[in-house]
Simulated assay, not measured.
Amino acid sequence: MQFRDLKKQYQKYKHEIDTAIREVLLSAEYIGGRQVSELEEQLAEYVGVKHCISCANGTEAMTLVAMAWGVKEGDAVFVPDFTFFSTGEIVSFQGATPIFVDVDRDTFNLDATKLEKAIQKTVKEGKLTPGVVIPVDLFGLPANYPEIEKIARKYNLLVLEDGAQGFGGNINGQRACSFGDAATTSFFPAKPLGCYGDGGAVFTNDDELAQLIKSLKVHGKGDNKYDNVRIGLNSRLDTIQAAVLKVKLQAFINHELEDVNRVSRLYNEGLEGIIEIPLIPEGFYSSFAQYTIKLKSNEQRNNLKDKLKQKGIPSMVYYTKPMHQQGAFANLEFDENDFKVTNELCNIVLSLPMHPYLSDQDIETIIREVMLNTC
């Protein structure tokens, strides 16, 4: 059994993927081939924004936006404490200071009430200038953008949606990667829409921001690649990855997004009342990058993980350590009491196998083993 079965996906779309890759090999346009611009157009249309700018990976997608916005030393950037390291890393990379904010226990996402308190505390201290908030669409569920954007406007903050895990989710029909002032996603293979290597993209309705990011991602180019008008990066999505993503995007739209939600419904039916299952608020739709349950204790979580492994069932812990406890941020000051939810979640969460090709038999097996080892 696979945690996320990329082999089955390839087997189903082998002809289409092989053909797409072969076209690139025959054209020899490995960088900047037509498939890249075609993919960007298709992604922008799907998400519902004017611009999609592809790049090398999801981390650099966020870095490009931070560079374009001029995030710098002395700025405070608000980041959820329960997320992957890169969201805070790109802040420090710019010389700014990440301010970690606890999350909502039900959704795993940035807690809007605690966000406002963190902003007020930062303003009162007067050491840093609040500039940006980076909500994360954790495990496929969009963050609470209606509330977060309201707070951001109140304090004149820019909002960067980290949609690395959220692509395909929506809030009342508005799709992930269309929120805030800009959004980013990752095409890492295990993401809801993944390629066969690294890849990422920036989404925005801001024409000027789009043009600036197009320059920054190719060494700060001006009219051509030998006219360099600013310091930038080398951050391009290669043509083979774009060709693969074009095939996968159609599969994602045609059935994969609905299929993972079907898997989640079957999990919910079997596990409700046994353990804490994911909560999807009314009006929200998840792309289920992960199906994450909560156990009663660290001991119970670890025991279940071990028992599942003995039965050949993979599971993962996202995340074992809060952002504020990462060694790279050891220079930052914090109050441990501000992160009670995140500290608890790191001890009790467990993600079960989740992908569009999970069979009913495998789902039943997983549910049975969870029930046997938690009751």
Results as ranks from 00 to 15, higher is better:
I21A: 09
T342Q: 05
D259Q: 15
K114E: 13
S37N: 06
V317K: 07
G168C: 10
N347L: 09
R265M: 13
V24P: 15
L271N: 03
S215D: 15
G312K: 05
G173D: 14
N303I: 09
E282T: 11
R34W: 11
Y196Q: 15
V24L: 13
G48K: 03
G163F: 05
D360Y: 03
Y13F: 11
V36N: 14
V202D: 07
N170L: 11
P314A: 14
S351R: 05
G200F: 02
A76S: 05
D104P: 03
S37I: 09
I275Q: 04
A251G: 15
T204F: 01
D238S: 05
A112M: 05
Y196E: 15
S287V: 02
L138E: 06
F85C: 05
T19Y: 02
I275V: 14
M323A: 08
Y145I: 14
K12H: 12
A61Q: 07
S297N: 05
W69Q: 13
Y267H: 01
C375V: 07
S315D: 07
V136A: 13
M323C: 07
E23V: 05
K294C: 11
D207P: 09
T87D: 08
D223V: 14
P142A: 14
N343A: 11
P130M: 06
F85T: 08
E60V: 12
V317R: 06
H219Y: 12
V123H: 00
Q2Y: 11
I277N: 00
G312S: 09
K305H: 04
L128A: 01
L332T: 04
E161A: 14
G48Q: 07
F187Y: 10
G168P: 08
Q211A: 14
F252I: 10
A164N: 12
G131H: 11
E116D: 09
Y267A: 00
E147W: 03
G126L: 11
I274H: 00
M323E: 12
G222V: 12
A176T: 15
K307W: 01
D198S: 14
D81N: 15
I17V: 06
P189T: 03
E364M: 10
S92D: 04
D362N: 13
E336V: 09
A118C: 05
R175G: 15
G58W: 04
C55G: 06
D238Y: 02
I363Q: 01
Y318W: 08
L64N: 10
N347P: 05
K154M: 09
D104W: 00
L110Y: 02
V136Q: 06
G283H: 10
L110P: 09
L138S: 09
I363G: 02
R34K: 14
S359E: 15
P80G: 15
L257I: 07
D223L: 14
L358C: 13
G74N: 10
T19P: 01
L128R: 00
P189D: 11
P130I: 01
R4E: 06
M67V: 02
V65C: 06
E40R: 02
F179E: 09
L304V: 01
D306E: 13
E41N: 06
P278V: 08
N170R: 13
Y267R: 00
N303H: 11
T113R: 04
Y226G: 08
K294T: 04
T292E: 12
Q94D: 02
A76C: 05
E45L: 04
A20C: 08
L193F: 01
G232F: 03
K7M: 09
C177K: 04
V218C: 08
L295T: 00
